[in-house]
Amino acid sequence: MRQDKTLILVVDDDEAVRESLKFSLELEGVEVGLCQAGQELFSHPRLAAAKCLVLDFKMPDIDGIGVLQTLRERGITLPAILITGHATAALRQRAAEAGAIDVLQKPLLGTVLFDSIRQATRAS
């Protein structure tokens, strides 16, 4: 019997980052959907099937925290991990208040992202 792969949605405005995250996560055996902006995520056809979100903090249309707040307002509470180039204590606090389960600083070395996803999907 075939077991479906876990779907992770990655939202980042940088194509190189999106593609590299997709490649590394697929090596770990998960299915990855990509969005280049928060607005695109809101209408993603498989949003309801996702087990975890990976959101860039800085994006041109709406930042990662704004994406989380909008999702929460719509009753969507799936686990989310915020990635950023500069993880301050204030940003971590804001992200936690918006519902992020983790804030990871780029560059994402080793298995730090997958480990956080694994923990998030176990808890959900």
Rank of each mutant, 00 (worst) to 15 (best):
M1S: 15
M1P: 13
R2T: 14
R2K: 12
D4G: 09
D4L: 10
D4H: 09
L7A: 07
I8H: 01
I8C: 14
L9V: 09
V10A: 03
V11S: 02
D12M: 10
D14G: 13
E15A: 15
V17K: 02
V17S: 15
R18D: 00
R18S: 00
K22M: 06
K22G: 07
E26W: 08
E28I: 00
E28G: 06
E31C: 05
V32Q: 03
V32L: 04
V32C: 13
G33R: 07
L34Q: 00
L34W: 08
G38C: 11
G38T: 12
G38I: 12
E40M: 14
E40G: 03
L41F: 03
L41N: 11
S43G: 13
S43A: 13
S43R: 13
S43M: 06
H44T: 10
H44G: 14
H44P: 08
P45G: 06
P45R: 12
L47S: 10
L47D: 10
A48V: 06
A49D: 15
A49S: 11
A49T: 01
A50P: 11
A50G: 13
K51V: 01
K51M: 09
K51G: 14
L53T: 08
V54Y: 04
V54G: 04
D56G: 05
D56R: 04
F57E: 12
K58E: 10
D61M: 07
D61C: 02
I62Q: 05
I62C: 05
D63I: 06
D63E: 08
D63F: 01
G64K: 03
G66D: 06
G66C: 07
V67H: 01
Q69R: 11
T70V: 05
L71V: 07
R72E: 06
E73P: 01
E73F: 11
R74T: 03
R74V: 01
R74Q: 15
I76C: 13
I76Q: 13
I76Y: 00
T77V: 03
T77W: 00
T77H: 15
L78N: 02
P79S: 09
A80W: 00
I81Y: 07
T84I: 08
T84C: 12
T84D: 10
T84E: 09
G85E: 12
G85N: 03
A89M: 07
A89Q: 09
A89F: 03
L91P: 11
L91S: 13
L91R: 06
R92A: 13
Q93T: 11
R94N: 10
R94H: 06
A96T: 13
E97C: 05
A98R: 04
G99Y: 04
D102Y: 08
D102R: 14
V103N: 01
L104K: 01
Q105E: 15
L109S: 10
G110Y: 00
G110I: 02
G110R: 07
V112P: 10
V112W: 00
L113W: 05
L113C: 02
L113Q: 05
D115S: 14
D115M: 06
I117R: 03
I117L: 10
A123C: 10
S124K: 04
